[in-house]
Amino acid sequence: MSPEFEWRVLGVVHAIPAGRVSSYGRVAELAGFPRHARHVGRLLANAEGVPWQRVVTAGGRIARAGTEAADWQRLLLEHEGIVFEESGRIDLVRYGWP
């Protein structure tokens, strides 16, 4: 990944307010790299000091459900006030950003 990609994606992720979420694809699009959702996921998997928990799948779900990282992400999002549906999905109309 290029430094420009990293810088722009991390800038978008930092802009997501607490209590809101965005999808990997939307972050890529806002950063100027449409169709690079998987690259966003790879970058966030190793990013430190970034509110990575605010990025979810396009369907409003936490990626890699059932892992410790997914459980931690859910806990962080709940702490920010995000309510999960019984199915484990986040209502993107209510909590989506931008």
Results as ranks from 00 to 15, higher is better:
W97S: 12
H79D: 14
P98V: 15
W7T: 10
A18F: 04
A70R: 12
L30N: 08
G66Q: 11
A31C: 07
G96V: 14
E6I: 14
G25T: 12
G88H: 14
G11S: 12
L76N: 06
I62T: 04
D91S: 08
G96C: 12
H36F: 01
L75R: 15
V13Y: 02
S22K: 03
L10T: 03
E80G: 08
M1G: 03
S22Q: 08
R94K: 15
G81M: 05
Y24G: 02
E29V: 01
L43V: 06
Q73W: 10
F33E: 00
D91T: 04
Q73Y: 08
L75W: 13
R89Q: 14
G49Q: 07
W97Q: 07
A65N: 10
L92V: 12
L30K: 11
D71W: 07
G49N: 10
Q53K: 03
V83Y: 04
S22D: 15
P98E: 14
A45P: 07
V13L: 06
V12D: 03
A15H: 08
V40L: 02
R42W: 03
G49A: 07
S2T: 15
G81V: 06
F84Y: 05
A63H: 10
V27G: 05
A28H: 02
E68D: 13
G49M: 10
V83M: 11
E4K: 03
R61P: 01
V12R: 01
V13Q: 02
R94D: 00
E6A: 13
G66A: 10
R61G: 01
V13I: 09
E6G: 00
I62D: 02
L92A: 10
E4R: 00
G49Y: 07
A65W: 05
G59E: 13
G41Q: 13
G32R: 00
E29C: 01
R38F: 08
A15N: 13
R94S: 05
V9H: 03
D91M: 10
G25P: 11
I16L: 06
T57H: 09
L77A: 12
G60H: 11
E48Y: 00
T57I: 12
E80V: 13
H79T: 11
Y24P: 01
R20K: 15
V40W: 02
F33R: 01
G11M: 07
Q73E: 07
R61N: 02
R61K: 13
L43G: 01
E6R: 15
L92N: 09
F84K: 10
S23Y: 09
G60E: 00
W7C: 03
L44P: 00
T67K: 05
G11N: 15
Q53R: 07
T67W: 09
E6S: 11
T67G: 13
E6D: 04
Q73I: 15
R20S: 13
P98Y: 12
E80Y: 08
L10D: 05
I62K: 01
E78F: 04
L30E: 08
I90V: 09
W7L: 09
G32C: 02
F84L: 13
Y24C: 04
A47R: 10
D71A: 15
V40G: 01
